[in-house]
Design a protein around this nucleic acid. Structure first.
Length: 118
RNA sequence: CAGGUGGGACGAUCCGUCGCGGUCGAAAGACUGAGGAAAGUCCGGACAAGACAGGGCGACGCACUGCGGAAAUCGCAGGUGGAGGUAACUUCACGCAGUCGUAACAGAAAAUUACCGCCUCUAAAAAGGUAAGGGUGAAAACGCGAGGUAAGAGCUCACGACGGGUACCAGCGAUGGCAUUCGGCUACGGCACUGCGACUUGCAAGACCAAAUAUACUGACAGAUGAGGACUGCCCGUCCGAUGUCAGGGGGUAGGUUGCGAAGAUAAAUGACGGAAUAAAACAGAAACCGGCUUACUGUCCCACCUUUUUU
RNA sequence: UGAGGUAUGGUGUAAUGGUAGCACUACAGAUUUUGGUUCUGCCUGCCCAGGUUCGAAUCCUGGUACCUCAA
């Protein structure tokens, strides 16, 4: 399984209430056009990611699920842009409209490049 | 042919590349993976915890009939009445009978009615008798004809409508038909009454395992002949002064397991791209389960029926 | 996810089924040299759609939006 370059196993998902709370408390925030990013760099471990779409802007669960899946898919296809240095990343969608996949992919690529250059 | 009414069905499938949840497997891999509403949370049920000797009142919900159903503000079939529609049909209401109310405005009056009018008596007025006609209003309390009368009136009669009683017939029944008899009122709402139901809370219910920290309790050791702490890098010294250390251990937090399913996660799985006439679109995503109801919605098909026009 | 609540001018809040009121605000005028204060006038409203009723803010049904609680 680990041989596949674009796999997205469970240990690359950011989970656990205490971990998320730690990222939100200590992490650094920045925003792009419709993504709000919070990241925390740890010394070791795999990169782990979390996607979130606020219920405030999208009442219907279908739209929230669709956006979360598109963001996660974009990360999965482009995750080699970021070295494995223990990044914990939260991606929060702040747009008002439902974006299509190419624009989300471009956005995620720019965010990952920005993170890798820091 | 056109328009309409009612009912029903489907609401996605396959292939390739990358990827995800679950089960099986040592592995390779194989199989499987959102809905008709998963939604709203409007009802009901199971399940679970808590409360509870037994019974009643209050408060709450339901209320035509029969059948189905675990039950339901559920379904099917039927009854009566109102409203809408040319029609097919749709929609609303329904226990019983006691009491109260139906109030703005208008109008004389919203109920033991009397302004104009009509009639009697009169010189006239007053007084009395009326409810045909007028006008107001959402609504004026049976219709119509004849008799009757001073004028009139169910005052009387025939026919009809309405509401009961009785007998017969049809029906399991609500009820209907028919005959006869009585009657003066009807409808809606509140309260009271009758019958039935209903304890409360909800899977974030509940059950189990269980770090760290503090600690009930138990044991061992040390302790006013000073344990331990503060000042300090250490010793001395000064100050405070009764518990301290170790082990066991109960409840229990984070967290985990279960509750949990022929989808079954626990930060939570169905996606991206290409192809299949290509366009797969609408409403919309399981987080404990089941039965209904309601609401949202794409394209199309099937069945039954109604109306209009044309042709035969 | 489960349980509950609310909706009335721009804001806050009343109203037994019968003309929708009050305070502040906004606007206009008066007072003042000007502004404030004060006085007078005036604009703007029952969340939406059906139903019951002669007549619904109110009663019934279904939606929508917002809020609260349970971790």
């Amino acid at each position: 399984m680990s041989a596949a370059p674009h796999a997205f196993p469970k240990n690359e998902k950011l989970c656990g209430k205490t971990t998320i709370a730690r990222v939100m408390k200590k992490g650094h925030w920045f925003s792009s056009t419709f993504l709000r990013v919070c990241y925390l760099k740890e010394e070791q471990g795999r990169n782990r990611i979390l996607t979130s779409v606020p219920k405030r802007y999208f009442k219907r669960a279908v739209k929230r699920n669709l956006l979360k899946r598109r963001i996660r898919e974009a990360y999965r296809l482009n995750k080699e842009l970021l070295p494995q240095e223990g990044y914990l990343i939260m991606l929060v969608y702040t747009g008002v409209e439902v974006a299509d996949f190419p624009s989300i992919e471009a956005e995620v690529r720019s965010v990952l490049k920005k993170l890798a250059s820091r």
